[in-house]
Design a protein around this nucleic acid. Structure first.
Lengths: 232, 232
DNA sequence: TGTACATCAGTGAACGCGCGTTCACTGATGTAC
DNA sequence: TGTACATCAGTGAACGCGCGTTCACTGATGTAC
């Protein structure tokens, strides 16, 4: 049937990647998609729900691929390593990148916004709609590093998420610097392939419990009163 | 003399932390600072230069403290470890946090924006104005891990930067999740103290050269043609 | 088969709003002669 | 000491612009009787 909806989604995706969300107007999108200005509100209701629709489409594609990779991993081996779990992310991300220009970058951008939102609507939406796949991933990671307790897992996951989002969403700036400094092009795939071993090492490092945190706090700043902040 | 300029800077800082830059209007800032709307343009010229001024003030405070910490580090020990270098970041960041509410968060937010900019004006500005301190820091890191070649250093630095920016700038969302999941409050200081050992481990992991990257790519995706993308 | 009505995709023009910025102006303080 | 002028901080009101959204409308297709 109608392709107007898809034209809008595709144009929005492309423009969001180039200019961000609030810097992309509906007029830019509809002009680029060659559709009527009012059709965005007709099909999506509002700009906000358009952004969510773009995000949802990415999440769907990404989580589908991630499922496939996790099936493959659990089928071939019964010993999980952090590295092998993190490697399930590689293909889903590179596939997004192949699907359309800057695909992985836009997705990570949207993911970043989802987290940055004050109210967290998108984050909640994603966690509800895709909780199966997401929990499965964190379960695998937990099985690969069973000595980590929940809180430490939580933070390490988000430290990792930060690196992924920052380097992939902002990879155009980094690409630019890298190419002017090293005279060498750089692809999303190369970044991911550097990031995975980096993060595997970080994830696998010896558990640091709260006491150790208090210790290194003291060690760093002997006269501080802030060590008292750390709960046991 | 006049405190109008400072009132504006302080109010802007606070509001930027809560709502981001483009979602914070000059009317919000001047209302909060209890000054005239036109005085922003009188003192700063434009909204853009106001943002830069807020950023610059943070950069100044941060790099000053970082210098002190690096002096201290190089004075007391002649054997540098990655961990000890990364620990120079702790005090400068926590001091920003003490200076005003969410100080470190706003600073990381601004840093994130500086990188996200399409044209990279702020990034260039910061790298020019504070290149001394910044280069000194990367030099120390390089001395602590001399086996890493330049490019690998570059990427690891930015992976780390991503984690710092994401978790500290968006720490309100994470705080919220953490507190609802674990019924436990969390401070910026605690996050930093988890992040430093995590990143030290990641930074210290064995160098992975381009061949290895190609290998793990192949291992992950045996039929791919993309291994050819990797330059030698 | 024909008529009446409903649904749906899409459109063109306008609406009201909030935005950053500008401008003519005031009043206080400093400086030259 | 007095006068004329310059500089500076700050102000109130308005400007033009681009934004997301709305609304009355068209025309095509589907459905009921």
């Amino acid at each position: 049937m109608s392709t107007t909806k898809d034209k809008i989604l595709n144009a929005a995706e492309r423009l969001f990647a180039d200019h961000g969300f609030s810097e992309t107007s509906l007029r830019m999108i509809t002009a680029s998609a060659e559709v009527n200005l009012a059709s965005v509100n007709y099909h999506f209701g509002s700009k906000k729900t358009l952004i969510q629709a773009v995000f949802d489409r990415f999440m769907g594609r990404f989580t589908n691929e991630l499922s496939v990779e996790m099936d493959r991993l659990t089928a071939i081996s019964d010993v999980l390593t952090v590295r092998s779990v993190l490697e399930t992310l590689v293909r889903p991300l590179t596939l997004l990148e192949q699907l359309r220009p800057h695909g992985a970058g836009v997705f990570m951008n949207l993911l970043g916004r989802a987290y940055a939102e004050t109210q967290g609507h998108m984050r909640r939406f994603a966690l509800e709609h895709y909780s199966d796949v997401l929990h499965r991933f964190t379960d695998l990671l937990h099985k690969a590093s069973p000595h980590l307790h929940q809180q430490e897992m939580f933070w390490r996951l988000h430290f990792m998420l930060g690196s992924f989002i920052f380097t992939l969403a902002g990879h155009r700036a980094l690409k630019e610097i890298s190419e002017s400094d090293f005279k060498q092009t750089v692809s999303i795939e190369q970044i991911i392939n550097r990031l995975v071993p980096f993060m595997s090492a970080a994830f696998s490092h010896d558990a640091v419990n709260q006491d150790n945190i208090a210790d290194c706090n003291l060690q760093n700043k002997p006269t501080t009163q802030s060590a008292g902040d750390v709960r046991s």
